[in-house]
Amino acid sequence: MEEEITGTPFEDLPDEAKVGVEEDEVTTFPHLVYKEFLCALAVLILFILLSVFFRAPLEEMADPSLTPNPSKAPWYFVGLQELLVYFDPWIAGVMIPLLIIVGLMLIPYLDTNPDGVEEYTFRKRKLAIITFTVGLALWFILIAIGYYMRGLHWQLYWPWESREMVKNSAEGLRSLPLYGGIVFLSIYFGLGIYLPARLKRGLLEEVGRARYVILMLLFLLMAGVVIKIVLRLTLNVKYILTTPWFNI
């Protein structure tokens, strides 16, 4: 069977047929096409089996007067819903998703490292891989917490706790005063952008000024999400910056 599929081996071809052909180059048919075919077959079988044995969820008919507690977004947005605990809706529901999309789109233009193309490597691009993995993990951890651990009134329930038990959210939350918030954010973004360029000689020249600032800004914003979560959980900080128009 194997011979029939592969036909004349490349090595057995006359030399004049090999001109201009790369060493590990193979014809798409059959080498790639048969893999695609088998893969498609496996996926189709899997989904037919799934559909026969697992019924798609369907609850009672929609009733605008009967709000479930808690109401949850579709699973892929539950991470953003979970962020509502720590941020106002205009940040959790608008700015963060926008920044994620823009940030993802900018990756190829910000990452100037030419190494590690078409290979799995950690050594050649450590910082890029750590950053991306942390972001990806954050997205799925938030989804997992929101989906599996949030109960009545979006309170945190451990798997062994009864979901019937009502929990109180009355905790003494406090915010930084206006000047405190301005100082905190100025230091955070100012030092965050200034220090790495200062400490690592040649970094600015290597990456380019505009690219460096955008890169650090996105980096600090992503880290800022984690910092705000930690500040809220440890020091009960509600807002870092309080203004008459918006709060952060």
Binding site: L58, E59, E60, M61, A62, P68, A73
Partner: peptide
Amino acid sequence: PWDQLSYWA
């Protein structure tokens, strides 16, 4: 599907 799940999500 217009059920409770979809409406509130």
